[in-house]
């Protein structure tokens, strides 16, 4: 059965004056030359980028049996051989995570108020925004390097690193939240003659509280994940254990650590998701 021709049906009330017009989808870049240049530029970049990768095929081939070993290690994770190190690393990670989140949240509240356009202005605003910008720009691990130099190896440097990360993260998002707050509610409290702290507690806090808890819980997840890597540069936590086991090719023990990380991340994610749902 041949498909009925769309042109022959419908619209019978018309004369056949609609000649065969063609149609093309409108392009994102209307100018054909600019469009071609964009495609060409993209292709050229890809070619050059791939060409300058410097792939060492021999070395990669040598990695294949090791990869097999790792994968098999992953199926038989070994929790016992390095059991002591693993437990110690995890306790360190968890304590760093909890403490840094609590301290970070506490510090980020005044910072966020100072970085919100509707509460602060002038130098206070600028200083708060700069603190946020700097602590957000550099990756945690890079910040950790400096704190390790300053405070020595160990979880304290890690703790400070995570606090800085938390403050930058929460400071920015909370400031945005505060800026989006209903001004009427704040005005209403201000109209009762309340002082600034009272305005904050009765006018602002109820509005941002659910979001603050949500973000804090979200940051708890992130801090745990981060705590698993800053150990690589000597800032304590499970990351130190992990990089040691990996560097010694103890894949079964490394797999054990990774499995535990995944399980804990899953757990915290579900728990924090549950709490956030209950709250909002």
């Amino acid at each position: 059965m041949s498909p009925p021709d769309a042109a022959s049906v419908s619209a019978t009330g018309l004369s056949g004056e609609a000649a065969a017009r063609t149609w093309q989808r409108p392009r994102l870049i209307a100018n054909a030359w600019i469009r071609r240049a964009a495609w060409g530029g993209g292709a050229l970049y890809l070619i050059v980028a791939v060409a300058t990768l410097g792939v060492d095929f021999e070395r990669m081939a040598a990695g294949v049996p090791r990869a097999a070993e790792f994968v098999s290690g992953f199926f038989w994770p070994d929790f016992t051989t390095r059991g002591g190190d693993i437990i110690e690393g995890f306790i360190e990670s968890v304590t760093m995570t909890l403490l840094s989140t609590v301290i970070g949240v506490a510090l980020s509240i005044p910072l966020a108020i100072g970085a919100a356009r509707n509460f602060a202005s002038g130098p206070v605003y600028l200083v708060c925004r700069s603190i946020i910008a700097v602590s957000r720009t550099f990756p945690e691990v890079m910040i950790a390097i400096f704190f390790v130099v300053m405070f020595g190896f160990g979880p304290f440097a890690g703790l400070i690193t995570l606090i800085v990360g938390t403050v930058g993260f929460l400071g920015k998002l909370l400031a945005e939240e505060i800026e989006g707050c209903s001004t009427e509610q704040i005005e209403a409290i201000r109209a009762t003659g309340a002082s600034l702290p009272k305005i904050l507690v009765f006018g602002l806090f109820p509005q941002v509280f659910p979001r603050l808890v949500g973000l804090g819980l979200y940051r708890l997840d992130i801090n745990f994940r981060e705590s698993a890597i800053i150990g690589v540069v000597g800032a304590g936590g499970i990351g130190a254990t992990l990089s040691t086991t990996l560097n010694r090719y103890e894949f079964s023990s490394a797999a054990a650590v990774l499995v535990l990380i995944i399980v804990i991340v899953l757990l915290t994610e579900n728990v924090s998701g549950f709490i956030r749902q209950r709250l909002i």
């Binding site: 021709d5 042109a7 022959s8 619209a11 009330g13 609609a18 000649a19 065969a20 063609t22 149609w23």
Partner: peptide, 13 residues
Amino acid sequence: PGDVAGAFRLLER
């Protein structure tokens, strides 16, 4: 082309 022409005619209709 027949489909496109048909679509134009219907849009007009």
